[in-house]
Every structure is written in C-alpha cells, then in structure tokens.
Design a protein around this nucleic acid. Structure first.
Lengths: 221, 221
DNA sequence: TGATTGCATATCGCATACATTATACTGATC
DNA sequence: GATCAGTATAATGTATGCGATATGCAATCA
C-alpha cells in the first residue's frame, strides 16, 4: 500500500471543509485568504486553490475581487437538495440492489449494528455520521455509477452541516436506525421498487425535519 | 449595465474549456501548465486556478504532482451521464411545465423555428448548439431549481464534446428538430407525465447514437 | 444638510522564484 | 540481457512580493 503524499492544498481543503461542516464557519461568513493562511501556516496560494476546490463542491462561493464566502442555503434550496438526493440515491439503489451479495448484506448489517451501539452510547457525530454514510454506501456499492455517486457525495456535503445542526438541536440524538433496519430488510427481499420508495421516503422525511428548523431560523433572522 | 471586469483566470477557463469541447484538446490529453501559460501569455498561477475550476466542472482531472488531463469517458460513463441527464431534465420539466406561460411557449416556438432555419442552412455547431440549449432552458425556466439546473449544465458540458463529435461524424447534421416540436406540443398540452416521458426518450435515444460511435472508437483503439 | 469626489486601506489577482516530487536515463551488478 | 540503484531532468507545488480592485471615510461643493 503506497503511502499517499498529501499536498498542502489538500490539507487546507480538508481543514476548511471541516470548519464549514462543523459550523465553526457559518453560512455567509467571509473567508479571508490572509487570515486562513496565517491560521494554517501556509501561503495564500494553497488557500486560494483550496477555496476553488471547495467552490466545486458547492460549499464556498467565489466572487472576483471580493473574496469567498461560505454558501448560504435558503429553506427552498435545502428542499431541492434533499429531493435530488432522494432521486439520485434511489437511482443508485435501483442499479445496485440486484447485484448485492450475501457478503454485502452481512457487512451492511454489521455497520447497522455498530451504528445502533454508537447511537445508544451517545457517540459524537464523527462516529455515527461516518457509520451512517458507510451503511448507505454499502447498499449502493454495486451500482457501478461513479458519476451518480459523486453527485450524491456532493449533495451530502451540502446538506451535512444542516443535518448536524439538526442533531445538535435535538439533543444529539440520531434518528431512525429502525428505518435503516427496515430498508436493509427490504433490500434483502429484493423488492426493488418498494426498497427505493422507502429510501425516498426516508430521505424526504429527514428533509422535513431540517426544513422546519431552517424556517424557524429564517424567521428569527 | 456595469462592464464586467474579467479576471485572467476566467479568461483562461473559457479558453481551455472551448479547447476541450471543440476537440482541440482530446480526452486523455495531458494539460501542461507551462505550455498553456506560454500559449495564453499568463503565468502558471491563473492556469492552475483555471484547471481547478474545470475540474469542478468535470472536464479535467487533477492528480497531485502528475498534472491535469482532459477527462476521458468510457462508453459506460457516457451511458451514465445521459441517463442522469434524462432523469434530471425530466425532473426540471416536471416542476416547470405547469408554470409555463403563453409567452414562454411563444418564445420556445421562436427558438425552435430559428433552430430549424439554422439547421437547414447548415450553420455551425456554435449556432445550433446554442439554440438547442436555449430551447431546453426555456422549457425548464419556471422550475426554480437552481441546483438541479446547475447539475444539468455540468452534465451537458461533459456530454457536449461527444455530441459535437457525433454531429461532425454524421456530416454536421443536427438530428431531431421534429422531436423538439413534438416535445413543445406536449408541454403546451400540459400533459406532464407524457411530456417528461417523451423528453427522457429523446435524451436516451441521443445517448444510443453517441454510445455506438464511442464503442466503435474504443474498438479501434 | 446631503450628495459627490478623492483618497486611504484592506484585500484580492497574479508574476516571479524557489522547493518538492515524479520520471526517464545511466551505469553498475548479477 | 535483466534488474536495480542513483542521478539528472522536467514538471508540479508553494512562498514572496508587487500591482490592481473594492470599500469606507473624509473633505468638498451645491
């Protein structure tokens, strides 16, 4: 296994992304190149390049001569992003479900068990969030749809910070591991249309929770 | 109207994008920073920043310490991209169709007439391609789904160069203005599900043509 | 007093120069 | 002749510094 040589720009990308997703940098905040450069002990070049990459991920907006800001999503936009996720993740599942092996199901089940344990133990978002992603990724793993997967990843990054906010707000409780179990069972049964419909439902209901939170915040502001 | 001040990086982005879409730079070709810098009379910094933006658009792939290459799409990937387009454009149409005004229909019809005239006159891709995009964009214009629109734009950029190749190959003839007319009529009739289904069909059939071409090219290589 | 112009400052955009990494080549060893 | 180590070369990655742009404030004028 080759050790990978990370470039400074990559490290900066990860640092800033985490700052945005964790809420350390809030939506709409300006991202000053010089300040970030000093904080991360690099020159402004890797900062600029990192910001450009994050713009591609949709987390940052760049305006010439004015600087970058963390993207701000309205309730309507969050709506759209979750609906896109529902659409595309269902598409992934549709293409993957019939190719999943017994091994895949077992691994998915293991991830789910781990997730339940972690959730019960009140572990941090870093743990539950990662397990959650890995569970979903496992279900889609046989889709062989790299572009769709990348789009889903991008949409997930965009919605993740709002999901985190929601979890914080509701006392750090992750919801719906039951839903996950039901989804997995449906996949095992091989009923593609039912499983996809359930998945869409699952994503859309998460949307509704988060949208409610956002509307409240918009009203306050 | 404020004159917009284009940054060097933006100009470079446009220059390289056009080189890729036009086939001047072919899929898989390496993009040497120094060479591009000299050719476009700028330093390597704006070149690097432009390449990063193009990576976000999916036209370029960046690998640390190895440089950038124009993205290469396998037949399977072209397949995927067109299916995504079909899915997402149908979604846009679904959300837009019932909000389209008589004015919108008239403008779409005008674009279509212009397109037919241009196609009959054998105009360049620059003309027909632009009209084609504007026609589709008009149909989606009331969707109010900015993220979906952006994804569609991105997918279009990725498929455009293959579409251009296909048109070149078949003697510069653009296909299916009839299909466009039928699509517009369906939209006018307000039959959402039929119109969306027809649109999907339209995109998928374009895919099949291009895929055939690509498979032939892969076989030759 | 209110609007407008000009200047000061913060910030960004980009050229130059140097550091680091990957790769092709050379020669030695088996 | 094949393989490997070591080096040379070319390309990328990053720091520094200067010129350009935007923005806020102060001075000026109607």
């Amino acid at each position: 296994m080759a050790i990978e040589h990370k470039t400074r720009t990559q490290l900066v990308v990860e640092a800033i992304r985490e700052k945005i997703l964790s809420g350390d940098i809030k939506a709409g905040d300006p991202l000053r190149q010089a300040a970030l450069a000093e904080e991360l002990n690099v020159s402004r070049i890797p900062i600029r390049e990192a910001l450009l990459q994050l713009e591609g991920e949709g987390l940052v907006e760049f305006e010439a001569h004015k600087g970058a800001t963390a993207t701000e999503l309205s309730a309507a936009q969050v709506d759209e992003i979750f609906e896109l996720r529902a659409l595309l993740e269902a598409e992934l599942l549709k293409h993957s479900i019939h190719k999943l092996t017994e091994q895949d199901f077992a691994e998915a089940q293991a991830l789910l068990n781990e997730l339940e344990t972690a959730a019960a133990a009140g572990d941090s978002y870093l743990t539950t969030g990662t397990l959650n992603s890995r569970f979903h990724a496992k279900l889609y793993s046989r889709a062989e749809r790299p572009h769709t997967e990348e789009l889903v990843n991008m949409l997930n990054k965009n919605s993740e910070r709002y999901a985190r906010m929601h979890i914080m707000q509701s006392g750090g409780v992750d919801r719906a591991p039951d839903g996950h179990q039901e989804l997995l069972d449906l996949c095992r049964s091989g009923n593609s249309s039912k499983a996809c419909a359930f998945l869409q439902e699952h994503i859309v209901s998460a949307k509704d929770d988060i949208k409610a939170l956002l509307l409240k915040m918009e009203a306050e502001a």
